[in-house]
Structures are given as structure tokens and as C-alpha cells.
Amino acid sequence: MVEDIGSQLVTFKLEGTENYKVWSTAVQLALHIRNKIGFINGKSVRDETDGTLQEQWDKCNVVLKETYDKQDGSVIYNLHHKIYTLTQSSMSLSEYYHECNSLWRQFDSLVDLPACTCECSSKFKEHAQLLRLMQFLMGLDDVFNSVRSIILTIKPILDVKYAFATLSRDESHRNSHSSS
């Protein structure tokens, strides 16, 4: 129902791998209680035979779109600014990586690029991955300087996921040596 649109599903924020299972269960339960889980798992589909139900479905979609699809240049600018000024600072490496990914996913969802299957599309994807890798590496704390230098010399250049895995191994190695 439309009145559920503004209500908060869960009272706590997803923090990453630390609370994903609890958060996911809470969201699923909240959606189930509100009879909305079918919209997520695909069991609820728009009725193609009943015109009244189609109209109700479309009205709900319009209300959702009018409520949440308010973007302009300032939204994209602010998100882009967050991406380019994000630094690890007091975050753990894992938190920083997940924050970067979250911001990139948000940015991707705001920017409608045409689906391209031409020969150049893979070059554009590589370029976008390179930019993300550089953003990620630039925001790292200085403790990762030596590993960052190694990552930048690897050919072919790693993507962000592999760079994060490399940095994580180094961090684990350093932590195990400092504790012993």
C-alpha cells in the first residue's frame, strides 16, 4: 500500500559484512510483514489481465517515482565530490573499500549510459576500472604506500577488487607480525 512508502523498514544501517546477515534478515522480515516481499523475490508481477489492478500497480509506481526519483545535476555533483574526496582516514581497509563500492554503485545508478556492444565498449569499461582503481589507491592511508607502489607496477593493471585483496593480505600479514 502507498502509505508504507515513507516508513522505515529497519531501524539500523547496513554497516557491511559485520551486520549484513542481521540487516538482511530484518529487511526480509519487514517486507514480509508488509506483504511486499513478492516485489523483491519476483513473485508479485503486474497483472496483465485485470485493468483495475494494472491501474493500481501503475499508480504505486508513479508515487514511488515522484517520491524518490528526484535527481538533478547537484545530486550527481555531490556524489561525484564524495567519490573524489573520500579517504580511508579512520576507516578500516574493508570499510573504505565497501564505502567506495557503495558510492560507485550509487553513481552508476544515476548515470544512464547506453548499452553498447561495440568493440570500443571493453576499452571504456577498462578506462572506468582504471579511474576507480586510482581513486581507491589515492584515498588509502600512508601505511599502504609500499603495497600501493607494487600494485601500480603490476602488468596488466589490477582492478579494484584484486587491489583490495592484495592490500588485505598485506594488512593481515602486518597485523599477524605486530601481534606476535
Rank of each mutant, 00 (worst) to 15 (best):
M1V: 09
M1I: 12
V2S: 06
E3N: 14
D4M: 11
I5C: 04
G6P: 12
Q8P: 02
Q8K: 14
V10A: 05
T11H: 14
F12G: 05
K13I: 13
K13R: 10
Y20R: 12
K21I: 05
K21L: 06
W23G: 02
S24R: 04
T25Y: 13
A26W: 15
V27Y: 00
V27G: 00
Q28F: 13
Q28V: 14
L31C: 08
L31V: 10
I33R: 15
I37C: 00
I37L: 13
I37F: 00
F39D: 02
I40R: 02
N41V: 00
G42F: 00
K43V: 00
R46Q: 09
E48H: 08
D50Y: 08
G51D: 05
T52R: 07
T52N: 10
Q54E: 04
Q54V: 10
Q54R: 14
K59I: 13
N61L: 14
N61I: 15
V63R: 11
V63Q: 04
E66K: 15
Y68E: 03
D69I: 07
K70W: 04
Q71E: 11
G73H: 09
S74H: 09
S74I: 06
V75E: 06
L79Y: 03
H81N: 03
K82D: 09
K82T: 06
I83C: 01
Y84V: 07
T85K: 07
S90I: 12
S92D: 06
S92R: 05
S94E: 13
E95Y: 05
C100T: 03
C100G: 02
C100S: 04
C100L: 10
N101M: 10
N101L: 15
D108N: 11
D108E: 07
V111M: 13
C116W: 04
C116A: 06
C118I: 09
C118Q: 07
E119Y: 14
C120I: 10
S122K: 14
S122C: 11
K123M: 14
F124S: 03
K125W: 02
K125M: 13
H127T: 07
Q129Y: 13
L133C: 07
Q135D: 07
Q135Y: 10
F136W: 01
F136I: 06
L137N: 01
M138P: 00
G139C: 04
D141F: 00
V143P: 00
S146W: 03
S149N: 13
I150Y: 02
I150E: 08
I151K: 01
L152C: 05
I154T: 11
I154A: 03
K155H: 12
K155T: 09
P156R: 04
L158S: 05
K161A: 15
K161C: 08
Y162V: 11
F164K: 01
A165C: 08
T166G: 06
R169I: 12
R169W: 08
E171M: 11
S172A: 07
H173F: 06
H173W: 08
S176C: 03
S176V: 11
